[in-house]
């Protein structure tokens, strides 16, 4: 009996089962998106369809209505850049240093980096509110300062992306080889480590961008404008445009995740060749 159970557990689902699962999961995702798309073409309560909501986006006369969105998009892009900067300047060197020089600290670093995923954003904001009073006194109240909080929220994802790359390559031996060939630590970092961590760095950066573009709670509770809070405000006056931008942001994030997946697949192909 145990043998048959083991076989069942280990067995791969059949093609038909896989197709059914794929269709169900696909429908769960696609139905709301199609509903959103259909909504953007609706002509009010009359039941007809129109392109007016889409063409209105390009109407100069309506531009002032969308200024909050422009500000939100601008802020989110700045936040994305600064957050990626924090990941690359703080997290990446720390991970490389721990991996190469302080391997005993790997577990500690992993726990520290994974913890934020267990903390709900609302709890994070409660903790961050007093911190931000200090941040504002030092850096001012500009929206970009939210990147400090986002740097924490993206930590688990960025850590995993970089760690999986670090773990796939014998970076210690490569570094030692570089050193034995006459390279200083800085040149080893530039010529050996970073090129081999390229995929992990790009994946971490894309994930950071995706998280920042989708973040609402922290920005809303700390009274900052980003794309998500702007969409909410816009939805109160023009629900159609808000849904159009929500759709577009979904597509952007989808494309980003697609790119990350493609990079992962390429890496898999390369390692098995």
């Amino acid at each position: 009996m145990s043998r048959s159970v083991a076989t069942r557990i280990g067995a791969e689902p059949g093609k038909a089962t896989r197709s059914v699962i794929l269709i169900i999961v696909g429908l769960v995702f696609i139905i709301p998106i199609l509903a959103m798309l259909q909504f953007t073409f609706r002509a009010g309560l009359s039941g007809g369809y129109t392109f007016a909501h889409w063409t209105a986006l390009f109407d100069p006369a309506q531009a002032s209505n969308y200024s909050i969105l422009v500000v939100g998009i601008g802020n989110s892009l700045i936040l994305a850049v600064v957050t990626v900067g924090i990941v690359l300047v703080v997290l990446l060197p720390t991970m490389i240093l721990v991996h190469l020089q302080f391997p005993r600290l790997r577990r500690v670093l992993e726990i520290v980096c994974i913890v934020p995923i267990t903390v709900p954003a609302i709890v994070l904001v409660v903790g961050l509110a007093p911190v931000y009073s200090v941040v504002v006194s030092i850096f001012g109240g500009d929206t970009w300062t939210l990147a400090f909080a986002y740097g924490i929220t993206v930590l688990p994802y960025a850590y995993r992306a970089i760690q999986s790359n670090l773990g796939a390559i014998d970076m210690i031996t490569l570094s030692e080889a570089g050193r034995s060939l006459g390279a200083s630590w800085l040149r080893v970092l530039w010529h050996v480590i970073l090129p081999n961590l390229r995929r992990g760095i790009i994946a971490a950066s894309f994930i950071a961008v995706a998280v920042v573009l989708g973040e609402f709670t922290i920005a809303s509770l700390l009274n900052r404008i980003n794309i998500q809070t702007a969409l909410l405000q816009l939805a109160q006056t023009d629900g159609y445009v808000a849904v159009i931008f929500a759709l577009l942001s979904l597509i952007v994030v989808f494309v980003i995740l697609l790119l990350i997946g493609r990079m992962g697949r390429n890496r898999g192909n390369r390692s098995t060749s």
Binding site: A177, G182, A183, P195, N196, R198
Partner: peptide
């Protein structure tokens, strides 16, 4: 003298070619 200044050549046990 640091390793990069010793003017030695080294071949490692594990494959250590730079993959990129």
């Amino acid at each position: 003298v640091p390793v990069n200044k010793r003017d030695i050549g080294m071949v490692f046990q594990s494959y250590s070619l730079f993959p990129h």
